[in-house]
Nucleic acid binder design. Structure first.
Lengths: 239, 239
DNA sequence: TGTACATCAGTGAACGCGCGTTCACTGATGTAC
DNA sequence: TGTACATCAGTGAACGCGCGTTCACTGATGTAC
């Protein structure tokens, strides 16, 4: 219950400032070129001082990656929550809102989005299990709810997909229930397909491959997510 | 008609060797870390010699990017051609074959795929118009044919999509006919959606975000492309 | 309340490294007469 | 066929740069008595 000491509070502040300066750096030069020296420079410190807060460059990167996953998941969550409280357009499916939250964050923070979904960083290995997978799961659960909410397990199990091989069915069924294992196999397949679809358009846009669409990228995206929802819903039988 | 001189042939050979060594380098350390010195080292040359072939690092990168686009388009083309000559499974839609050609190339050359679709390289600006857009168009045309081949313009124009705004319709109609401008607007929208869908799954897989699917990524991909085809075809009215 | 000691944020100096690029050169290949 | 000159691939030496990390230090903050 003892409140943090002055030193602890200062340390926390300094750490936060370092992370923010690093994010600023990433926004300017991209994740691959992030340099400790530049971060220190931005803070008016010497590089060596950073080593009191992070044992090395990779440790700082890990924090940045983790935070980016969390911020992205938060952004999607916030988009859904806001729309739930005060629906701007009651006809807009919440999946579209969630997807647009995802897209908006990516466009607002392209370099941090790269950090997550772009080229894996040389020499940097993301921690296998941990906060990053937690944030991913959180986001997955959100989309899953908007896609499949309101359908029974039986309906989902009867979803109309191209046939799944027996080994695939078995594999999907034994995935950890905290993730996708809770869904019947055809629904998992649909989910992956939908996830790729949503992610694909965002990735193309963020990396500049759809710039020929000019100002209409947002509309194409919304259109595409609407179709996605139609397509998926059309594959789930009525109760 | 004069055949190339000895010197010209040697120069061509040397240039090819440099490009190959650079591709090898990229395969080992990734596109961002590509260094002229390492390329020269691999060839047993000094760095300075490279400057007789490329004015600077960016020029080499441009060649590598262009070649990667071409090689990818070639791989897709080859997959379709092979299947046309000697269909391994006559029931497998050619779109699936093209898509799997795309996926296979990406998986076989993940670093070169990154070069095209991963994080844009710092300080490197791709030539706006030129060979890269040509290769992209080539690939686009291939997929377009497999998606929409056999349908009339009238059918495509009547495709069932969520409503397109008037400005979007107008914009899509005036795109250059060499690219997507030849399609009726709803078909273009469908095409973009399909392209994102296909690309998305590949990108997730290549960058390791679907590794939890283990050996089943190929099947999920095929399933997803089959669904994609169903979904699109289902939106185009009968003649 | 004061004093002795431990903790810790920060600095100055330095390390070794690999990088892209430039310059002046040598020697081989090609060309004109 | 031989000779003079131009072209060009390659080298040695060097440039200035920014990087991550280590070490020994100073001075402020916190803690035990």
């Amino acid at each position: 219950m003892s409140q943090p000491s002055l030193r602890e509070r200062r340390r926390a502040t300094a750490t936060r400032e370092i992370v923010e300066a690093a994010e600023q750096q990433i926004a300017e030069v991209g994740p691959a070129t992030l340099s400790l020296r530049a971060v220190a420079r931005a803070l008016g410190m010497t590089v060596q001082a950073l080593y009191h807060y992070f044992p090395n460059r990779d440790a700082l990167l890990t924090v940045l990656v983790t935070k980016a996953y969390d911020d992205l998941a938060d952004a999607v969550q916030a988009a859904v929550d806001t729309a739930a409280d005060d629906p701007a357009d009651p006809d807009l499916p919440r999946l579209v809102i969630a997807a647009e939250g995802y897209r908006s964050w990516a466009i607002a923070h392209p370099e941090r989005f790269q950090l997550l979904y772009g080229t894996p960083l040389r020499g940097y290995e993301a921690p296998a299990e941990g906060p990053t997978t937690r944030a991913t799961r959180r986001m997955g659960t959100l989309f899953e709810r908007e896609l499949f909410g309101g359908f029974t397990k039986a309906q989902l199990a009867a979803a109309d997909t191209p046939p799944l091989s027996a080994p695939l069915r078995a594999y999907l069924e034994q995935l950890p229930p905290s993730g996708l294992g809770a869904l019947p196999p055809p629904a998992t397949a649909l989910f992956m397909s939908a996830w790729g679809r949503l992610h694909g358009l965002v990735v193309l846009e963020v990396f500049g491959h759809t710039s020929f669409l000019g100002d209409h990228q947002a509309e194409i995206f919304r259109l595409s997510v609407r179709s996605l929802l139609d397509d998926i819903r059309g594959r789930i039988p009525a109760a």
